[in-house]
Write a protein that binds this DNA or RNA. Structure first.
Length: 103
DNA sequence: TTCCTGACGCTCG
DNA sequence: GCGAGCGCCAGGA
């Protein structure tokens, strides 16, 4: 599925440009790697909007397509996860992708 | 239009 | 080294 197609689908879901951009950027995170909220915010050109990033993820209408579980808090914590399974599920997914919890 | 809330981060004590 | 408080941007009511 192309990003352009996903972007339009997100837009049709009622998400704003900012939220859409955030989710699109998250798809660029390599498998097995993670990025902090601040990193993601910087990716969309809003280094100080890390908090808004969390808001965007919470509204993620395409959880299976957008790896929002790859976005973690700074300091090594996983942070929160609203999808079924919660934080525990989030960690499971990351480990399955080869993510190193201690890294 | 204004105020409150939120899957957070950084600095100060 | 740990804990509390303040600041940040965007959305929703």
């Amino acid at each position: 599925m192309e990003k352009r197609e996903i972007r339009e689908r997100l837009r049709s879901k009622g998400l704003t440009e900012f939220q859409t951009e955030v989710l699109i950027r998250i798809m660029d995170i390599p498998k097995g790697e993670t990025r902090s909220y601040k990193q993601v915010a910087a990716m969309v050109g809003r280094p100080g909007a890390y908090r808004a990033v969390g808001t965007a993820m919470k509204k993620n209408p395409m959880a299976p397509v957008i790896p929002c579980h790859r976005v973690v808090r700074s300091g090594g914590e996983l942070g929160n996860y609203s999808a079924p399974g919660g934080t525990r599920r989030k960690r499971e997914l990351l480990l399955k992708e080869g993510w190193k919890e201690e890294a």
